[in-house]
Design a protein around this nucleic acid. Structure first.
Lengths: 341, 341
DNA sequence: CTGTTAGCGCCTTCAG
DNA sequence: CTGAAGGCGCTAACAG
């Protein structure tokens, strides 16, 4: 009915002429066995195509080797894939497997889904958001080791990993300044979220650090979408004293800026340089010219979250929570050039 | 250590003054219990915040309620999210949960990952590809109920669901013809995969059905990427007898066609109409004007695969495999208009 | 209609 | 260094 896991530990024991204990020890690198016995048991287990039943071992050892992954908007964002890949690869390296639920917008449903994870005895939970945010973790999670991914929680002592938003903006704006730009506009996101705040702060700081006066009229705020970016970029670009470069909240706004530039007959990068944040390849790489973008380290955050969670699970004493802001590297393509003279 | 699942079925039994059997029956809607007892047990279980241990029940009942999902390129395609969402929602409705692995390009690694699923006693497997393809299913899967998603297998009798590629092309081209176009180019994909074959066939059939002679020179083949689309679209659009409409293999090639048109000073949709396949919103919706596209039903395929798999699992006798070609709906945006006169 | 009795397959004290 | 026994939490026969 199920899979071919007909052969159990006792079959191996019988075939090897030892007890089940010895087999268990040999296979789990536990106990004190002679190397010879250990090898022989392993060989025979292999020959018999023995495969452990993790329900049984989990039941007994109180370790399911399952990590629950609670994510929002898995379907609507392109980032989810890389987060999940990073998490899954890190988990696989440690003999764990991911159990994924898409936390719905409805908190009631989310609780149901988390309960399913808990019923399966997930050893721990990665609570992931696709956009950096502050949140309160659902009460059901209390008592289960949890790591926050692309999210932070004020009320609870949970480890978390988020992108270094300020640093991302600094990297982008510095790149523009180093190319010679002094008049740099910012296409900001209206939403009041950490990414908006951090990137705006990074933009300001970097200009100031380079002795560039901040011109508030060069900060245009809109929806963090292509059409939003197009709209606000148009305003900026139709001014007689338009900026020579644009830093964009994300790649979608960056794409909007391309469209606005095209509509206004402004060439990229000759007349206008653009840097954004996301490095969403399907967009950044597809634009003409390619969009230089600061990458949000989704894969790395996925890995980090799993590694941290497993470290907490393995620690004999509770670890003090760690809060990481992850570095965001610049991916250069073709949208930056020196300003037109 | 683990979660708060301290309270077990025996605690509930004690509190309710019944045996564990009665509790089990009450909670699982099994056996023959008086409605009164059933309700009382459920109430008490709720009050005690009882939560079943699915490792234990799975071990006993030989049903883990886990569906394994093995997918490729989960991280690099935007489709994965919707497939997974459809699968996960359908699974949740049936009390099941998804265990996801990203099958690497390396078959050895893939086998390892599938084995992990099997060790966790997954009741069945969804073997999913992100691009429609024919394949041989890994030998490890033999003996485990498996459903193919966006893939078909010649050598094995496994149920499968794929997009109706021919139908998708017919829908797209028919839409163009109904808008008045007769001279319709096709941006084809060089890769020799079912999608390429099916969409090309659908393009040809539809023209023929409408009495339109096929002009082979209007079929331009390139990489299924934005730059590939741009390159081949340029060829077509720089001809004096250029087509009035373009059917594109996918949205990325469609985006390339937009760029080629822009470079050539051709306006969409006034001078040129475009329809493609994918309906990848982040691109189709972001383009100016919006790209009319035939949607690949990823969410629905995810749902279908789970429902089919569960049906096979629940069937007393083996079901005869089902092979579905799923309908692809047209999503109209702004890239189609009557041909210029 | 409800309770008793065995395990599901494995790990983990304990003895030997 | 190895083996015997008990039980993780639950369900499925069968009794009553």
């Amino acid at each position: 009915m199920s899979n071919g896991a007909r052969v159990g530990i006792r079959d191996v024991a019988a075939a090897a002429g030892v007890s089940v204990t010895t087999v268990s020890h040999a296979l789990n690198e536990a106990g004190q066995l002679s190397q010879e016995t250990r090898d022989r048991v392993k060989r025979i287990a292999g020959e018999l195509r023995y495969s452990p039943n993790r329900l049984a071992s989990g039941l007994r050892s109180q370790r399911s080797q399952i990590i629950g992954f609670v994510g929002d908007e898995i379907s609507t964002t392109p980032y989810a894939g890389r987060v999940i890949l990073g998490a899954q690869e890190a988990a696989a390296e440690r003999g764990c497997v991911l159990m994924i639920v898409n936390s719905a917008t409805d908190p009631g449903l989310e609780e149901l889904e988390i309960n399913a994870l808990l019923q399966h005895q997930a050893d721990g939970i990665i609570y992931a958001r696709m956009y950096h945010q502050n949140l309160r973790v659902p009460a059901v999670l209390r008592g289960t080791p949890t790591v926050l991914l692309d999210a932070e929680s004020g009320d609870l002592d949970l480890s978390s990993v988020v992108p270094d938003e300020v640093g991302a903006a600094r990297t982008a704006v510095t790149h523009l300044i180093e190319a010679g730009h002094r008049r740099i506009g910012y296409l900001a996101n209206v939403d009041d979220i950490p990414a908006s705040i951090g990137r705006l702060a990074g933009y300001r700081q970097t200009l100031l650090d380079h002795g560039i006066q901040i011109d508030e009229s060069l900060i245009a705020t809109g929806d963090a979408t292509t059409s939003g970016g197009r709209a606000v970029a148009s305003e900026l670009l139709n001014r007689s004293d338009r900026p020579t470069a644009l830093f964009c909240f994300n790649d979608r706004m960056g794409m909007g800026a391309y469209q606005a530039a095209s509509l206004a007959g402004i060439r990229i990068p000759d007349d206008l340089s653009i840097v954004s944040v996301d490095n969403f390849e399907l967009v950044a790489d597809a634009l003409l010219p390619g969009l230089t973008s600061v990458e949000l380290p989704h894969y790395e955050m996925g890995r980090w979250a799993i590694e941290r969670l497993l470290a907490e699970l393995d620690a004999p004493d509770p670890l003090t929570p760690d809060h990481v802001q992850m570095y965001c590297p610049l991916i250069e393509r073709g949208s930056v050039a020196p300003p037109p003279r």
